[in-house]
Write a protein that binds this DNA or RNA. Structure first.
Lengths: 134, 134
DNA sequence: CTAAACCTTTCAGCACAATGGAAGGTCAAG
DNA sequence: CTTGACCTTCCATTGTGCTGAAAGGTTTAG
């Protein structure tokens, strides 16, 4: 299976596949006499896994760590579970932060609605974003 | 006012101030005979504005565009309002996406809780993240 | 035999907002 | 006059996941 076939099978580009190899996510396959990469069937499974894990929000580094465990013969279950929990925490922290940001932006929008452009002098730069010095 | 004083007054580092100048956020000030930057009082106001705008989640590029309007003699109110609304939309889109990601992660966590490590063969890589082929 | 489609490598760059470090110049106090 | 704090410039790097381009080699169909 050449890289173009694998790309078609996985829905990735050949560039991305080479990038994944370089990033340690996909083992370097044997080469044809002409120097072309010649992939075994499992390569497609591996790429499917990488994309699934990415969809779950894992980084390539984390995915690499899971694959490394698997490749060393261990079941990565415990590691995967820990990563999922960690990302769950992360996601919740980011949501809390976005909630704060949204509240701040809503406050600014309200302020913008009642701001008189004429009241905004050059010294203030912008009275919506910064309270004018009193 | 030299850069160190301005840094102390604004709570930024001298490096960041030079970076802001280079990024077009702070006009290049006159220099002393020794080549040191010599800032007018307004520089502090300007930096305060930059930080406030950043706190609101605006990017440096957006802040630059507000300052450019102001420097060209126009009141940037309408532009600022548009930017705020746009960031509000953005924030809400990202929150919706995080909500989806969180739901996916929760599903995976539930699955991880009931997964038997022994059921996870080498071929599957990880049955928590990818359903085994049937 | 030729042209197209495919493959190879390597280096560079994107966005984002700084930060680190090197190598050297200037200024005020003691 | 020296020490040390402060200043100057420029280049490189951080993290993330690719993508672009250049310059060339291989394979397959007609």
């Amino acid at each position: 299976m050449r890289i173009g076939d694998l790309a078609a099978a996985s829905g990735l580009t050949t560039r991305t596949i080479r990038f994944y190899e370089q990033a340690g996510l996909l083992p370097a396959p044997p080469r044809t006499p002409g120097g072309y990469r010649d992939y075994p069937e499992q390569a497609a499974t591996r790429l499917t896994f990488v994309r699934s894990a990415q969809d779950a929000g894992l980084t390539l580094a984390e995915i690499r760590s899971i694959l490394a465990l698997r490749d060393s013969g261990q079941a990565p279950c415990a590691h995967v579970t820990a990563l999922i929990d960690q990302h769950l925490d992360d996601t919740e922290r980011r949501m809390a932060e976005l909630t704060r940001t949204r509240a701040a932006l809503r406050g600014l929008a309200r302020r913008a609605a009642v701001t008189d452009p004429a009241a905004c002098t050059e010294d203030d730069i912008c009275t919506i974003l910064v309270s004018p010095r009193t």
